[in-house]
């Protein structure tokens, strides 16, 4: 397959997803659009609860039964994934689009042998013999860096460490040979030292297998080495999107500023600037900009009217009234400016 860098493999358009809950409809995703080009890594970054997992569960067709897709399209290979029936979806899952979960501790079946959990899908979807499936599984285990794969093949999840289990989850995701790999906070549940290795592994297999990757995280710090483009998500919307350089060096949205400031900085060991307040209740999302209540730069209009998306470059968009021509000029916070200068220097 020749790689055409501008070919779009997946395109999400104005996706809106709500959940039926006791108090009303939880509006988890409120008009998300982004696309994924072949061979690139796109990150979706945002605090916990911003709707990242729900968005990608829609792509995988594994939304909870109480979810309602209110509108939007997910274009993939000439199909709209929001309309694909359950009977057809299992051919896409695993074989075309693979998913790596956040918590490898609970993602593996505790009473099924590791090997079987990898070969199972080969048997069921590809109809190959047991020996061949085992051979393929051992290859995959090698590929994701599991030593002594032959012995490990017959062990159970509880005999593996967290990092090793995540490698197994990755091997399972690769077993169907997908072209898109979605990683939902793949390192959040792991130790810092293990994190770096898993990220390295994801980058390595992405290169080797020419994957297109959607990388979800709540930690901008992880994104820098992974993503070509970044979407910043808040309260069910993408508030800023751009290339990694644009997001890190020219952030325009106060929420992105807050995320950048809250990133732990190993060099200076300066204290984290936690984002004040909590995300809004998504049963009654606020009028205006959802971030306004936590934003010290908020103006009157922010509480009344949603900001439109302002274009900063061909690749850089942000939804904040601060970019409106009539808005007062607000400079980057000093701490952040200093930090960006350092990051630029380090590059």
């Amino acid at each position: 397959m020749a790689i055409n860098p501008n070919e779009t493999v997946l395109k999400v358009e104005d996706l809106r997803i709500s959940f039926k809950a006791y108090g009303g409809m939880v509006q988890a995703v409120r008009g998300v659009s982004f696309d994924l080009k072949r061979g690139e890594t796109v990150a979706i970054v945002g605090e916990s609860g911003s709707g990242k997992s729900v968005s990608i569960k829609a792509i995988m067709g594994i939304l909870a039964p109480n979810a309602v897709i209110e509108s939007g399209r997910i274009e993939y290979d000439g199909m709209d994934l929001t309309k694909v029936s359950e009977e057809d979806f299992h051919k896409i899952r695993g074989n075309r689009i693979g998913l790596i979960f956040q918590d490898p501790l609970s993602a593996l079946n505790p009473i099924m042998k590791i090997g079987k959990q990898i070969t199972e899908v080969l048997h069921l979807s590809k109809k190959i013999s047991s020996e061949e499936a085992k051979h393929r599984a051992l290859e995959l285990m090698h590929a994701v860096g599991i030593p002594e794969a032959e012995r490990r093949f017959n062990q159970y999840p509880f005999q593996f460490s967290g990092g090793m289990r995540q490698r197994i989850v990755i091997a399972i995701a690769l077993a169907g040979d997908p072209e898109i790999l979605i990683c939902d906070e793949p390192t959040t549940a792991l130790d810092v030292t293990v994190q770096a290795k898993i990220l390295e592994l994801i980058n390595k297999i992405k290169e080797e297998r020419h994957l297109s990757v959607i990388f979800i995280t709540h930690d901008l710090g992880v994104v820098a080495n992974m993503a070509d483009r970044v979407n910043v998500m808040y309260a069910g919307k993408i508030v800023e999107s751009g290339t990694s350089e644009e997001i890190f060096f020219e952030p325009a949205h106060p929420y992105t500023w807050a995320l950048l400031s809250s990133m732990p900085d190993l060099q200076t060991k300066e204290r984290l600037l936690a984002i004040p307040g909590t995300p809004p209740n998504m049963i009654y999302p606020p009028a205006g900009d959802a971030f306004a209540a936590r934003n010290k730069y908020a103006m009157k209009i922010d509480f009344e009217k949603e900001p439109p998306s302002f274009k900063l470059s061909d690749t850089h968009y942000a939804s904040t009234w601060l970019l409106h021509p009539k808005a007062p000029k607000v400079d980057l916070p000093d701490v952040l400016r200093a930090r960006i200068e350092r990051m630029k220097g380090a590059k």
Binding site: H90, R93, G98, F101, A107, N109, P110, V121, I172, G176
Partner: peptide, 24 residues
């Protein structure tokens, strides 16, 4: 979660239920 993973592997809902949920 592991049932969800079973489905993201490409197992049908029935396969995932029988092979993973039921025995467990």
């Amino acid at each position: 979660e592991y049932l969800l993973l079973a489905r993201t592997k490409g197992l049908t809902r029935t396969q995932a239920t029988v092979r993973h949920a039921f025995r467990n």
